[in-house]
């Protein structure tokens, strides 16, 4: 899974074939943008972690046609970094602006976006527990979806599937099942779906 991943994973932003950024965004954000491109009509920009709230505030409130609808916020585990992705839209339109922040894998920090949208509250809590990102200044930094005793950050690619966790343990029937047929599975595909989280 992570080993078969190609290292030229550049995603879309900054990749080939992108058009230059719209003038309005380039002028409003200026040097805050480290990478930027337009792919299929969608604006992709990358900003440093320290500037992200200022950049989001300008995009959402200070432009002539602001991107004031925060559709989604999620984390992504890239091979070289952890990303936080903000999907912004103009209200009542399909004009999208995707803002990214690249964070180091060890101890990632980013300021919270809850000061601009309360939407970000739960989304950031989810990203925090799934990727281990610390959102500085978050009003309620508790776990959201996972049980309290799960260790590690499950959506990171290097997360180890805790075989002995009571919630994730397979039911007795599934334990017995390979024994009925024995050998077959082990030879064919060694431990292929260990990480798919069959939490029944």
């Amino acid at each position: 899974m992570q080993d078969q991943h190609t290292s030229d994973e550049e995603s879309k932003q900054g990749g080939s074939g992108g058009e230059p950024l719209p003038a309005a965004i380039a002028a409003a954000l200026g040097s805050r943008i480290t990478e930027g491109a337009v792919v299929d009509g969608v604006v992709h920009i990358t900003v440093p972690a320290t500037e992200v709230i200022e950049a989001l505030r300008i995009l959402a409130f200070e432009m002539d046609e602001p991107y004031s609808h925060l559709s989604d916020l999620c984390g992504v585990d890239r091979p070289d970094c952890i990303e936080v992705v903000y999907h912004l839209f103009r209200p009542l339109s399909n004009d999208a602006c995707v803002v990214r922040v690249k964070l180091p894998r060890t101890n990632p920090h980013v300021p919270t976006a809850t000061v601009l949208w309360e939407t970000a509250n739960w989304a950031e809590r989810e990203a925090a527990e799934m990727y281990g990102i610390t959102f500085e200044g978050h009003p309620d930094p508790r776990r959201l979806l996972l049980p309290d005793d799960i260790s590690g950050y499950p959506l990171r690619k290097d997360w180890e599937y805790p075989q002995d966790h009571p919630y994730l343990r397979r039911e007795p029937l599934h334990e017995e099942f390979p024994e009925i047929v024995g050998r077959v599975r082990a030879e064919a595909a060694p431990a292929e779906d260990e990480r798919d989280g069959n939490s029944k």
């Binding site: 099942f177 390979p178 009925i180 047929v181 077959v184 599975r185 064919a188 595909a189 292929e192 779906d193 069959n198």
Partner: peptide
């Protein structure tokens, strides 16, 4: 041919 076994999302098929 075990195609079904490989394709099953839940791995609930075993063919010997």
């Amino acid at each position: 041919c075990q195609s079904c076994e490989r394709a099953c999302p839940n791995h609930c098929i075993r063919v010997v």
